[in-house]
Computed example of a mutant assay.
Amino acid sequence: MIQVMGELLITCGVILLLFVVWELWWTNIEANSAQQAAVSQFAQDFQGPVAPPPADAPPVDYGDPKVMAAPDQGSTVFGVVYIPRFGATYSRPLVEGTAPAQLDTLGLGRYDSAVMPGGVGNFAVAGHRQTHGAVLDAVHTLVPGDKIYVQTKDGYYTYVFRNNQIVMPNRADVLAAVPTQPDATPTDRFMTMTSCNPRFGAEERIISYSLLESWQPASAGPPAEIAAQVAANQNGKG
């Protein structure tokens, strides 16, 4: 009897180990492949130069950001997010929706209650931290002043990271038009990223807040900091 119990425990241990390997390794391989393909497809369909404006070009005021209409929820990629702090080649697809169908495959999903990139209010997205591509694994490394770039068919939106906050999973107010202030009327253009916390758990949520600094239309070319990666994505080498 003791021998049988021992064998059962060993079997259970092996099964648990295989599950952990699948969850933390294989899901990342599958998701990374799908995300790279999605980014490449978006980049190839993108209409606009991939070279940045000349370094000596005078600054241009492009007026209020253009804000695209929200797409249907699903697998259609409507943007790409670049976060240089996470690595020079970091570029992840942006889709509509935060269900497993979106987050487990395509990375960053927009909450349906949020505004679109560049809109007044809160452009809020979610992403996994350790599995399914681990798109926000390094979110805790962001420091104030870091740039977060969002590319859509209309152009590029540059957000500047402000701070992180650790909250409980029921804190829906972080998704308010003015984050954490559900009764306030927005005048700024926020970007909020949400993910699980700690890195290998889900007891809390880590929330990252940024503010829009500037935007430039697709015809102006990408910001210099991400130009190389924009070109690599368009060439299918992202």
Rank of each mutant, 00 (worst) to 15 (best):
T180M: 10
V14H: 14
P54I: 13
S195I: 05
V115P: 00
N164F: 15
N163M: 14
I207K: 11
P52N: 08
G87A: 09
D56N: 15
V80G: 05
T152E: 04
C12D: 02
Q102W: 08
P93I: 10
V230W: 08
F19Q: 09
V125L: 05
L9N: 06
D56W: 12
Q234E: 06
E30C: 07
G6D: 02
Q47L: 14
L175I: 03
V125D: 00
P52C: 07
T152A: 07
V81T: 13
T105D: 07
M68I: 14
G87P: 10
S208L: 10
A124H: 03
T131M: 11
G6T: 02
P222R: 11
A134T: 13
G74F: 13
G63M: 03
C196T: 09
G109R: 10
V67R: 03
T180Q: 04
T152M: 06
V230C: 04
Q151L: 04
L108F: 14
E30Q: 11
I15A: 08
L8R: 14
V178G: 00
A37K: 13
F200H: 11
V60R: 14
A220K: 04
A114K: 06
V167T: 12
P179V: 03
L8C: 06
G221D: 06
K237L: 11
M191Q: 12
C196I: 10
G236Y: 05
G238D: 06
T192D: 02
A184H: 02
E204A: 06
S210H: 14
S113N: 13
N170E: 10
A202T: 10
L175C: 00
K153Y: 09
K66L: 12
V21N: 06
L8G: 04
A124R: 01
S33Y: 15
V95D: 00
D45T: 11
M193F: 14
P179H: 03
T76M: 14
W26P: 01
V50M: 07
R199Y: 10
Q3E: 08
N197M: 04
P223M: 03
F200G: 03
W26G: 01
A69V: 12
G238E: 02
E203R: 09
D56R: 15
R129F: 07
W25L: 06
T76V: 14
P144V: 01
Q35K: 15
G109E: 07
S208K: 08
P58F: 07
V81Q: 09
L16P: 04
M68D: 12
V174Q: 01
M1G: 13
V178C: 00
Q234I: 05
G97M: 02
A126K: 07
I226Q: 01
R92P: 10
D137N: 13
A43V: 08
W25R: 09
T131K: 13
V81D: 03
Q41F: 15
R129C: 03
R129M: 06
V14T: 14
P182I: 00
A224T: 09
Q41P: 11
M168A: 08
L175D: 01
V120I: 08
G118W: 00
G118M: 00
V60I: 12
A232P: 11
R92L: 11
V167Y: 05
P52T: 10
L106Q: 14
A70M: 12
